[in-house]
């Protein structure tokens, strides 16, 4: 008997060690339950929701008795890793994919993930549309579909299998899944013109997509309908939704498009930074300064060590340029 207990304990320890899984006895914070495998980290955020980090953009995964719902799908080349990570969380069918924008770091795995999923159909649809049940539904704002697809004869940004199958054009889209209300709220002209916040109302978790990041200045894609005022409005919307548990900590947890798990105060700090830099650029424009003069003036120097990416859209120069272009195009945008 003693041998059996020892063998069982050893096997259990071995399994956890192989998986790199860490369990803590006291589940106080969302750092108590996580799995690290190579450059991939899966963390239990709260309630039904997990975050998978290391795929390009963050992926939120909601699991339950009914099935699996994911918010965003990371870069295309990481699809198989993402599928494997989801399967370690649940063997239930993947039914919903929600995209928070059209960028490839959040939609790259759409096609591969859709293929492993299902759409629950019934009534006349089942007989009339032969492939109606094949693949998971992809929910996004209509503008995401516009960005990923193309008119007949033109090359689309993504293959048809990656396009949203269920879009909304204003307000919000609602899903009730895994005994949880899930809201998909449009945030106009923020990071792009097709951004959505995804709110897990029972788990008390918000997935923000690239409206919010902890690794760089925001990427305001002015070419694709983004704007500084919409970005600030969206950050304030997240702050309005989030309710901290105690002294501005905990309570509602936030999954950013990139970076670590956050709560309201982390978004507040980010909102403050974005607003202050916007104020400075707006003031400089009023004084008649050109974009080059504004870049040279160093209006982000106090934030660069923390927020400027080394390259890409999250650099200080690109952030300032996006604010400038956005304000010049429309002072309220």
């Amino acid at each position: 008997m003693a041998k059996l207990i020892f063998a069982s304990a050893a096997a259990t320890i071995g399994i956890f060690a192989i998986a790199g899984l860490v369990f803590a006895q006291k589940n106080q914070f969302p750092w108590d339950d996580y799995r690290v495998e190579g450059d991939l980290t899966t963390i239990h955020v709260q309630g039904n929701v997990y975050m998978i980090h290391g795929l390009g953009g963050n992926v939120a995964v909601q699991i339950g008795d009914t099935g699996v719902l994911v918010v965003n799908t990371g870069l295309e080349q990481n699809s198989s890793k993402l599928i494997a990570a989801i399967r370690k969380l649940s063997d239930k069918p993947l039914q919903y994919i929600i995209n928070t924008c059209a960028h490839p770091d959040q939609t790259g795995g759409n096609e591969a993930l859709r293929k492993i999923g299902v759409t629950i159909t019934g009534a006349n649809v089942t007989g009339d549309i032969a492939d109606a049940g094949q693949g998971a539904q992809i929910i996004a704002h209509e503008n995401v579909l516009d960005r990923l697809s193309a008119p007949t004869g033109q090359k689309a940004a993504a293959p048809a299998g990656a396009w949203p199958t269920d879009t909304y054009v204003s307000g919000q889209k609602e899903v009730f899944f895994n005994e949880e209300p899930v809201e998909v709220r449009w945030q106009p002209a923020a990071h792009t013109d097709g951004d959505s916040l995804v709110i897990f109302r029972r788990s008390d978790v918000v997935a923000t997509g690239d409206i919010f990041s902890t690794v760089s200045y925001p990427f305001i894609d002015v070419e694709r309908g983004g704007g500084i005022q919409g970005e600030i409005d969206a950050l304030n919307n997240i702050i309005d939704i989030a309710i901290p548990k105690h002294e501005e900590e905990g309570g509602t947890y936030i999954i950013p498009g990139h970076g670590r798990i956050c709560d309201e105060f982390d978004v507040v700090e980010y909102r403050d930074m974005v607003t202050i830099v916007r104020d400075r650029v707006r003031n400089a424009i009023k004084k008649g300064m050109t974009l080059e003069q504004i870049k040279t003036a160093g209006f982000t120097k106090d934030y660069d060590a923390r927020w400027s990416a080394k390259e890409g859209p999250g650099t200080a120069d690109n952030f300032v340029a996006a604010i400038y272009r956005s304000l010049k195009a429309s002072p309220s945008r």
């Binding site: 803590a24 914070f29 969302p30 750092w31 980290t41 900590e249 670590r260 798990i261 982390d266």
Partner: peptide, 18 residues
Amino acid sequence: TIWMDDRPHPPEAAAHTW
């Protein structure tokens, strides 16, 4: 809480607290 059991610090993607 000051853990004295040699446990690792959480991964980079974990939440931060006061």
